[in-house]
Design a protein around this nucleic acid. Structure first.
Lengths: 344, 344
DNA sequence: GTGAAAGCGCTAACAG
DNA sequence: CTGTTAGCGCTTTCAC
C-alpha cells in the first residue's frame, strides 16, 4: 500500500479500484439517495483509506458556485467585530459555507481593493461594515449588477442596495445622554468620529434630541469629531483640560477612547464621575477593569453576525429573499457603571 | 452595448471579439512578455469594458495550486494576533497570495477541524499558532505528507516539523523576574497558563532561573496555572487576597489578565506597586490606560507575521527552503512602567 | 442503481 | 508573437 503521498487521488482512482464509474463515486461521496448503501460504504471507506480530498476547484468550476461568503470589516482587532465574526462563523459553518475575511483598516482605499478582490474570488454573498472614510458604495456595484446578495451591518449607508442589520443608534445616543442628564449633567460633551458613518451621525442626533427634550441648549463647541485611537483620545483630553468652562459630562462614542480620555483627565486631577461623568459605547471587556468602571452601551455583536449570516444564507438557499427585508434593528442596552453615577 | 450582466464572460468571449485565440488572451491578461503590447492593450481594454473577471477555479484547477496561504490562530480578538495578521497580510498581498484565516478559539477540537478544512481547501502553505490545549501535531500530518510547507509562530512545539518563529520566552521571563527582584521583591508570584504551550513553559523556566540566580527559593505555591480570561483573573486575585503571606510581586503572563487582577486587588485596598509590584506580558494598548500603567514585555507581532510569511513564500517560490531554517528568534523588550517601579 | 459523455474556464506544451 | 490542442477533476444530463 505504498502510494506516492504527494500525488492527489481523484474520484477516478477510487472508481478504478472499485470497478465503478466516476459518476457513481461522485454521487456516493455526496450521499446521493439513488446509490446503493453498500456501494456507498465501499466508496467512502476506500476514500478515507486513500486519503482522498475532493477538489473544490473542479467542483466549483463545474457548479458555478463557491459556497463562500465574503466578510468585509473595518478592523479585526475589536471585541465587537470579533463577536460579530463569531456569530457569522457559527451560522455559516452549520450551513457549510466558507468564509473569506478581509479587513480594510478603516481605509476606503483598502476597502475598495478588498471588495474587488472578494468579487473576483466569486463569493456567493457579502457581509460588510464600512470603513471610516468610505464616501460611496460604488465598489459594491459589481455585486449588485451580478445579483450577488449584499448585507451590511453596523456601519451602513441608509439609502443603499442590500439589507442592513443595525442597532438603533439614535435611541442609544438618546438614552446615554438622558442618563447623563439624569445624573445632573448640564454641559455634556459628545466625542465622536466621522459623521459620514450612520452610527456616529445617529448617535449625535440622539444626543441632540435628548438635550432638546430637557431644554438644554445645544452647543457646537461641545461636540468633538475625531479619530478613536489612543492619540486621538489624548488630544481630546488635552482639549478638555484647556477649556475654561469644562463639561460636567462626556458621552464618548467608543469605550477604548473613553478609557484613554478618562485616564488622562484623572492624571490631571479631574475626578470621575464627580467632576465629569463619563459614558462610552460598545461594552468592551476593558470597561470593567478600569477605575471607575465604565458606563456604556452594550452592542449585541454575536447576534448581529448571526442575523446577518442567517439572512444571507436563507436568501442564497432561496428560502427567503433579502430584497424585501431591508433593515433589521437589534436591541442595544445601556449598562450603568460607576463612571457616570453620582450619588447626589 | 447591452450584455446580460449576470452571465460571466470568459477569455473566449474576448478572444472571439478580437479575433484572437484564448491562449493569447490568457497570456495578455497575465502580462506575458511574449505578447505584443498593442495586443495586450486591446485585450485589457476590452476585458475591463466587458467586466471580465478571471475564474480562479479554472486557473487553480489547471495549475494545481491555489496561491492561498492558510492562517490558523488561537484567537482573533487580541492585539497581538491582529498585528501578526497585519504583518502576514502585508507580505502575502505583495506576493499576490490570498489568505484563508481560521480561529480555533483556544480549542484543540476546533483547531483540528480548521486544519482539516484548510487542508481540503488546498492551501499552498500554512502559518499557525497553537491553541491552549492542543496535545499533539497529528492534525498537521496531512500537510507534512503532502509536502505542504508549515510554519508555526509564537505557540509552537519544540520538536515539530516545520519552521518556527518565536521570541525568547525564557529570556523574557527571566528579565521580567529579575526586574521585579531589582525592585526589592522577594516573594514573586507567577500567574501563567497551560504549560503545554512553550510560551508559558519557557517563561516559567526563565522565572525559576532568575530566582535561582538571586538565591531566592522557588515555591510551588507561588505559581498559578489558570486561564487568562476575566473570570480567571478574578479567581486568581481572590486567591491572593486569601493568602496569609501575600506575594510582594506578580509576574502575570498576559496584560489583560494582569489588568483584571490588578484592578481587583486595588479594589480590596492593595496598593500597586507599593504592596505588590506587577508585570504583564504582550504590551497590549490597554496597559497604558490603566492606573498605574502596566510594566510589560513588548511582543513584536507585525514583525513575527512578516517574517513567517516571508519565509513561507520564499519557500513556495523556491527561492529558499524552509527545511533548513528551523527556528527564528525575534527580539522582545521589557517595558518598564509604574505598576512595578518602587521609588525606594 | 449505475454508466457514458460532455463541458465548466483556464493554462502550458508544442508548433509555427 | 500567436495559435492548436489537450486536460486539470468534478457534476450532471441522458440513457439503460
Amino acid at each position: 500500500m505504498k502510494t506516492d503521498s504527494r500525488a492527489d487521488i481523484t474520484i477516478y482512482d477510487i472508481a478504478r479500484q472499485l470497478n465503478l464509474s466516476a459518476a457513481t463515486v461522485s454521487r456516493a461521496l455526496k450521499d446521493h439517495p439513488a446509490i446503493n448503501s453498500k456501494t456507498k460504504k465501499k466508496i467512502n471507506d476506500l476514500a478515507t483509506e486513500l486519503g482522498y480530498r475532493s477538489n473544490n476547484f473542479a467542483s466549483n468550476l463545474r457548479r458555478g458556485r463557491t459556497n463562500t461568503i465574503g466578510v468585509l470589516v473595518h478592523e479585526l482587532n475589536s471585541g465587537f467585530i470579533s463577536s460579530v465574526l463569531a456569530g457569522i462563523e457559527k451560522v455559516t459553518t452549520e450551513a457549510n459555507y466558507d468564509l473569506l475575511i478581509a479587513q480594510s483598516s478603516e481605509s476606503a482605499k483598502k476597502e475598495i481593493a478588498n471588495a474587488n478582490n472578494l468579487f473576483h474570488k466569486r463569493v456567493d454573498g457579502l457581509i460588510a461594515s464600512l470603513s471610516f472614510d468610505t464616501e460611496n458604495l460604488a465598489h459594491f456595484d459589481p455585486f449588485v449588477k451580478k445579483g450577488i446578495p449584499l448585507i451590511f451591518f453596523d456601519r451602513v449607508f441608509e439609502d443603499s442596495e442590500g439589507a442592513k442589520v443595525v442597532i438603533d443608534n439614535f435611541r442609544a445616543g438618546y438614552d446615554m445622554t438622558q442618563h447623563l442628564i439624569n445624573q445632573g449633567c448640564k454641559r455634556i460633551m459628545h466625542v465622536t468620529a466621522s459623521l459620514k458613518r450612520n452610527v456616529y451621525a445617529d448617535r449625535l442626533r440622539g444626543y441632540k434630541q435628548a438635550l432638546a427634550d430637557n431644554s438644554i441648549k445645544y452647543d457646537d463647541d461641545l461636540v468633538v469629531v475625531n479619530g478613536l485611537e489612543e492619540s486621538d483620545g489624548i488630544e481630546t483630553a488635552q482639549r478638555v483640560l484647556r477649556m475654561k468652562k469644562k463639561p460636567d459630562g462626556m458621552f464618548i462614542t467608543n469605550d477604548f477612547c473613553a478609557a484613554v480620555i478618562m485616564h488622562h483627565l484623572q492624571e490631571e486631577g479631574i475626578r470621575i464621575p464627580e467632576d465629569i461623568a463619563i459614558g462610552g459605547f460598545n461594552n468592551d471587556v476593558m470597561g470593567k477593569i478600569i477605575s471607575p468602571r465604565l458606563t456604556t452601551i452594550d452592542y449585541p455583536g454575536v447576534q448581529m453576525g448571526e442575523i446577518a449570516a442567517r439572512n444571507l444564507i436563507s436568501h442564497l438557499d432561496g428560502s427567503a429573499t433579502l430584497t424585501h427585508t431591508n433593515k433589521i434593528i437589534i436591541k442595544s442596552d445601556l449598562i450603568i457603571r460607576e463612571s457616570s453615577v453620582r450619588s447626589s
